[in-house]
Each structure stands twice: as C-alpha cells, then as structure tokens.
Design a protein around this nucleic acid. Structure first.
Length: 582
RNA sequence: CGGGGUGUGGCACAGUCUGGUAGUGCACAAGCUUUGGGAGCUUGGAGUCGUGGGUUCGAAUCCCACCACCCCGACCA
C-alpha cells in the first residue's frame, strides 16, 4: 500500500475522551473511530488487524475440527424467550420491533440459535460430535461502555459451540478447544494466563478464562509464584490457615462508645488511643446480604474483603444482594457501620480467618457503639465458611507458595455448558440403545476486537503501538527521505521486490518531512521499518530498524528484501508470495 | 441507576464569573523558504457556540428543561 493513497487519519493530539493506552493509540493511529458511546467504526488499518486476528482464529478452529457458520445478529424474540433469557438478560439485551410490531433482539450471544440449528437436524449419536463456530458482531447494552474498544456495546466475537453425546465426550471437546486457544493466544503474541473462572449462573461446571496480563485489565487475578495455579479472584482458593486456635482466655466482651465512626479505618483510628495493639486484622467486618428475601450476615476480618460469589455458592444460591440501608437498620437496630454478629438474629457466616481472631472488635448493633474482646464460639455462634477474597501473598491451594496479584483482560472463555440449553430447547438424539438424550454442550468465546486493544495495552511505548508481527496491519514500512528522486525510486524498487516475496509493505511515498514520517511510523507500530535516505544510498546501504529495538541495521540494497522477508517469518509473520509484474 | 465532569471550525482548547455579535494552536488550501525525528513566514477557507424554551435593546455568556459524551461506583452471558 502506498501511504499517499491510504486512508490513515492520524492525530497529533490525544482525543479528550480517551484514557487507556489502547484507546488513545487506536484513535491517534487512525485504526478506529467512535461514533457513539461504545460504538466504533473500523478504519482500514483497524480492519486489517482484525482480519489478522480472525485468520489465526479460523486456522486453529478449523484445525481443531470446528466448522464455521454465520448466524444472524437480528433474532426473533422467540428464541431467547424459549430459554427465558429474553427477560433474564435484562437491560443488557437490545430489543426492537419490526413494522408489524413483532419483537426481536440483537444477539448478545448465540446459544439459543446454535442449539436450534443443531436440534433441527441432529437426531442420532452418529451425527455427533459437532463443533460449530462463527465470527460475528455481538450486541450488549452495557451499563457503562468504557476504555474504548475494551468494553463496547457492539463488538466482534468468535463463538464456538460443541455438541457431544455425554459429559465425558464434552470434556474431550473442551480439552481440544482449550488446546486450540493456547495456540491462538501464543500466535497472537500475547502474554496470557489460563485461570479458573466463575462459570456463572449457567449451570456450567468446568470453565477457564484466557486472561491477557495487563495492568489496566478489568479482572483481578491471582497467579501462583511457583506452580501453574491461576484463578480469577472471584473464584480463587487458598489453603486455609491450620494454626491451632488460641484457647487462652481473653477479657469479657465490653461495649465502647464510638460516636460516628462506622468504617473499619475510622474505628481503628478512633480506638488507637485506648487500645494500642488495634489493627484492621482484629476487626470483624460484618456485612448484611439479602439472600432469598432473608437477611444473612457475613463476617470477614477487617483487612479482608468478602467474595460475594463464594458467599452465594456457600448459601446455594445464584446471587446475593447487599442489603439496603433501611434493611440494615431494621435488622440490627443500628445505623450502617455498627452491625456485628453478637446478638444478631439470623444466619451468620464467618470466614475462618475472622473466626480465628480471639480478641476481636465488632459493631454492637447499636448506633455509635462497638464491642471489644469479642470471641467467636464464646460471644456468638456462626457457621465457619471460607468467604473472603483471596489476596496477594495468600498460600496457593495447590502448592502453598505465595500467590501473586495481576490484572487481566478476559480475551477468551471456554466452558462446558452441559445440558442447560439442550434440555430447555429439546436438542436431543437417540443413543445406540435407542434412548433419547439431550446433547451435552460446551461454548468457547474469543473477544476478537477486544484482543486488538489488549495487544496494544501490552505492546506499546511513548511513541505508539508496537504490534506483534502476527497481527500488524503491515509487516514493514518503507520510509524514503528527502525530495530527491533517488530514495523514492530505491524504495519503489524494494517495494516491488517485497511484494513478490509476499511481504506486506506500506510505502511512505508522501511528500512529508522525515520527522513526520518517522513519528507516524512509530505511532502506527509497524514492526519493521526500512529507511531509504540519500546518505545511505551513496554508500549503497539501507537501514532496517525493528520497532521494538533502538538501533538500526545497515544492509546492502540488494540484500534488504530477503532480510526483511526472513525477519518477518522469524517474528511470526506470514508471507503470501505473488508473481512478478510482467 | 447514584456521584462528579465536559459539550465552542476536523482535533485540542481559551472566551462564560462581570451579556455587546467568536478567538488561539494544530490540521486544511495557495505561495516562498526548509528537508534524517511532528519546520518557518505570508495569505486564505472553514464554527446551528449540544438542543429547545425563557430573561434582555442585545445571550457562547444569565435562568429553566432536555440531550449527548467522559470519569468513579453499581453492573458485566
């Protein structure tokens, strides 16, 4: 491509609304443009990057035995109504009506549609297994789109669905997909981890997220410093403390006046004068949750956070909701901030770490009063369950080495769905003995457009993007300098040589000053740059510079094309050789 | 949905408090000079001041309502 003909509207200034690196650089580099909250258009460069990501995904999915389909984005409401998700999806579902008043929704995901596709034809175990996928736009009315292309209302996604005769075979399909995902993420040049994840309220049992490790990620993860354990903090486990419980006596509980200090920090600061060894670790944090219309108190140590997902699992429900201020007042008789397990009427769950505190401070269920010298088992009873959020430094549940905290962007999610949809939608088959059974499903997503942003979050510097070769919009940029004819002619010749070798080159034939060309080249993040200046030409040399390196390499003109092609291949790029022009 | 903020040429902003008919830089067009890291000078084109209403002789500016977008939180198959 000739730069002078390319539609690449780069920006010198940072658009006001862009905050994260990927958002800023995608806009500045002319890859994408926002036309509404969470709605982006893909300009030529952005489209090329997406196409590269799609190509890698297609190849690995096809190799893994999956077949590509394309489902509609516009869906008659009856499909999501059939599984109840037309309502349960809530506000996230884009709903619309046609001119006759019939209801539709835009596809936020396609389990219903694919299940319908399969149930129409699959009647026998002989037709299974099956794995179908598509790469298509998804629509979700996010409560808050953010971070540019990382959380959009319309986004490109690859979603695959497997269909098997039983759980064991479904697990095999799952394993095949998981392996394919590893190849995809590696080839895309991303630093990622596979982590244990919440499978949600879908009845799924086995699931894993492919998390791209970046500081700006939305998800908090813990990764073992020693073994391969990694998990989303939502579901992370840790070895329970095995310390023997302190049986020595502690003073009897005592009520203290703590006017206006409700939060853990405030109480610690307030009591620091009278109790010298106070710390958040001696506080009991008592949180009230609405569970099936009953109030349940969850108690964790003051320096811990409650994990709502673990609490919900422990209580055997899909979801728990933080109690409202009024509910808290009604249940404890005190303002928010003064709740405590002592004397609380209702179920109390306490985390082991909190239960182990033998001389604790907690709310007294009385406004402006706290209790000191409180002890689980003596002053109150509670069910001991692990409900706290695992954090940095906690021991790994597998090997006890300390866990490390990371943040990540969820780039992919694989999971076994079981028969959740097939039962509801009657997707059944006859097994060899003639018995009718529901197919066992799995689903596998990759956020294609999100990965484009994730790659930038991971690979950029102050000057711009540094694309991994495998997804770069062009593999090399040729930068002839100066007004004289020599450099441009040499660049044209090299451009043709590279074309024949199959290298994707961008020829910066614009009548711009060198500084402008260099700045744009760095911003766009093309992995290789060949600089063609009169100075070099006089010595018969061209310069080759990697975007991710500081120094350039000087090569004789005749060797440059071959060198570039070799480097492209070494860095994970592909060549698509063409025939020479007649 | 709660809290905070912003809407003024393509982009980034000033002007709003204290009302008088819109400006700066970049970008764009033309000319001259310049040419290895976002050049200089000259000239020029381009703006319903988010929308609607109100106050006023007069509104980007004051008042009311609405809309859009961003950030924090809630939420996120």
């Amino acid at each position: 491509m000739r730069y002078s003909k390319a539609f690449v509207p780069t920006l010198k200034e940072v658009p006001k609304d862009a905050t994260t690196p990927s958002h800023v650089l995608l806009l500045r580099g002319g890859f994408v443009r926002m036309i509404g909250s969470g709605i982006y258009e893909m300009l030529p460069l952005g489209r090329r990057v997406l196409a590269k990501i799609e190509r890698t995904i297609r190849r690995e999915m096809d190799d893994a035995g999956a077949q590509e389909v394309l489902m509609p984005a516009l869906l008659p409401a009856e499909y999501f109504q059939e599984t109840g998700r037309y309502d349960s999806f809530g506000g996230a579902l884009f709903r619309l009506k046609d001119r006759k008043g019939a209801e539709y929704n835009l596809g936020p995901t396609h389990e219903e549609i694919i299940t319908d596709m399969v149930r129409r034809d699959v009647k026998s175990y002989r037709q299974l297994p099956l794995n179908l996928y598509q790469i298509q736009m998804k629509f979700r009315d996010e409560p808050r789109p953010r971070a540019g292309i990382l959380r959009c209302r319309e986004f490109l996604m690859k979603d695959a669905y497997s269909f098997d005769v039983d759980e064991a075979h479904a697990l095999e399909s799952y394993a095949v997909m998981r392996a394919a995902y590893h190849r995809i993420f590696k080839h895309l040049g991303l630093d990622y981890r596979v982590v244990d994840a919440d499978s949600g309220a879908m009845g799924g049992s086995t699931s894993a997220e492919f998390q791209v490790l970046v500081q700006t990620g939305e998800d908090a993860l813990v990764v073992c410093s020693s073994c391969d354990y990694a998990a989303n903090v939502e579901v992370a486990e840790t070895t329970l403390p095995t310390d023997e419980k302190d049986t020595s006596d502690s003073p009897a509980a005592e009520k203290l006046h703590t006017p206006g200090v409700g939060s853990i920090e405030d109480v610690v600061a307030f009591l620091a004068k009278t109790l010298p060894d106070i710390s958040a670790a001696r506080m009991l944090k008592s949180l009230l949750y609405l569970v099936d219309e009953k109030l349940v108190m969850a108690v964790v140590r003051g320096d811990d956070d409650l994990n709502e997902i673990r609490l919900a699992r422990t209580l055997g429900v899909d979801e728990v909701f933080m109690a409202s201020e009024e509910d808290v007042k009604k249940a404890t008789g005190a303002a928010v901030g003064f709740a405590g397990p002592v004397g609380f009427e209702g179920e109390v769950i306490i985390d082991p770490a909190a239960a182990a505190v033998t001389d604790a401070i907690t709310g007294a269920n009385e406004t402006d009063r706290h209790l000191v010298h409180v002890r689980h088992g003596r002053d109150f009873e509670a069910r001991v369950e692990s409900v706290r959020m695992v954090k940095q430094g906690d021991p790994c549940p597998k090997c006890s080495a300390p866990l490390e905290s990371y943040r990540g962007i969820e780039g992919g999610h694989v999971f076994v769905l079981g028969t959740h949809y097939s039962k509801k939608m009657g997707a059944t088959f006859l097994d060899p003995s003639g018995e009718e059974k529901p197919v066992v499903m799995g689903c596998y997503g990759i956020g294609v457009s999100r990965l484009m942003a994730a790659a930038i979050e991971q690979h950029h510097d102050d000057d711009g993007i540094i694309w991994p070769m495998s997804i770069a919009p062009y593999q090399v940029i040729l930068t002839p300098l100066g007004k004289a004819a020599g450099p441009l002619e040499a660049a044209e010749a090299l451009y043709e040589e590279l074309r024949v070798l199959g290298v994707e080159a961008l020829l910066d034939d614009r009548a711009e000053r060198p500084g402008v060309k260099f700045k744009d080249a760095d911003l766009l993040g093309i992995p290789l740059r060949v600089t063609i200046g009169q100075r070099g030409l006089d010595e018969g040399l061209l310069e080759l510079k990697r975007r991710d390196a500081k120094d350039a390499e000087k090569l004789p003109i005749a060797e440059m094309a071959a060198r570039v092609a070799t480097l492209v291949t070494e860095l994970g790029g592909e060549l698509t050789p063409r025939s020479a022009k007649a």
